[in-house]
């Protein structure tokens, strides 16, 4: 694209362009232990990382390609690689990313309080028009384990005017929805007026991330 030099695999990159129509970088951020990697693995591989998988080792990013309105959209979903633990993210990590999933753990109040800090990092380093989604993870937990109410999450999201939903990487609730909604939103944003010519793009044009999430959201079991 446009003179950029890919020193890694010139051959591969040219063949790859036929594999998808557009590619977007999505980041998953949030405090340690809120389940970022689990969300990612659940979405990509459909499995749950249980047991004593403690911190992120070896997961850099995952690719997932989906088809939206006949277009192949490739999401490149980046994990934090454990650098969030001491709030030492490499800033270049935020560059170029089209969407950020900001995750907290509904059983961990601190992770919810820290959402504000994460948002300030995003404002500082990410592009101003990044798509931001707030996610309360672990909604499979019991009522007694829950420390952050659904309404509190919704209120916070509203104050920043961003989309919110609760998910469970363990059961899979709303995980696909979260990423798919992001992909649809990014697809919509990427359309140029030329794309509308001679095509019925009314569905994309009228796509609204919030409404989509609202209508598709599965009820979380314990709110």
């Amino acid at each position: 694209m446009n003179g950029k030099v890919n020193i890694r695999k010139t051959r591969l990159s040219s063949s790859i362009s036929s594999e998808f129509d557009s590619i977007f970088k999505v980041m998953v951020v949030g405090d340690s232990g809120v389940g970022k990697t689990c969300l990612l693995v659940r979405y990509k591989d459909g499995t749950f990382l249980g047991g004593n998988f403690i911190s992120t080792v070896g997961i850099d990013f995952k690719n997932k390609t989906l088809v939206i309105e006949g277009k192949k959209i490739k999401l490149q979903i980046w994990d934090t690689a454990g650098q969030e633990r001491f709030r030492s993210m490499t800033h270049s990590f935020f560059r170029d990313c089209s969407a950020i999933l900001l995750v907290y753990d509904i059983c961990n109040l601190q992770s919810f309080t820290n959402v504000t800090n994460w948002i300030s990092d995003v404002k500082q380093y990410a592009s101003p028009d990044v798509t931001l989604v707030l996610i309360g993870n672990k909604c499979d937990c019991t009522t007694s384990e829950r420390k952050v109410k659904l309404q509190e999450g919704a209120r916070l999201a509203k104050s920043y005017d961003i989309v919110f939903l609760e998910t469970s990487a363990k059961t899979g609730v709303n995980v696909d929805l979260a990423f798919d909604a992001v992909a649809r939103e990014l697809h919509k944003k990427s359309l140029t007026p030329a794309d509308y010519i001679g095509r019925d793009m009314s569905a994309s044009q009228s796509f609204n991330l919030k409404q989509y999430v609202q209508s598709e959201k599965e009820r979380t079991t314990c709110c």
Binding site: V57, A81, F86, S88, T90, F93
Partner: peptide, 14 residues
């Protein structure tokens, strides 16, 4: 930054 990210991916604490 790229090398630091790489180190973190392989378990480096930053």
């Amino acid at each position: 930054q790229a090398f630091c990210r790489f180190s973190a991916v392989f378990g480096g604490t930053f």
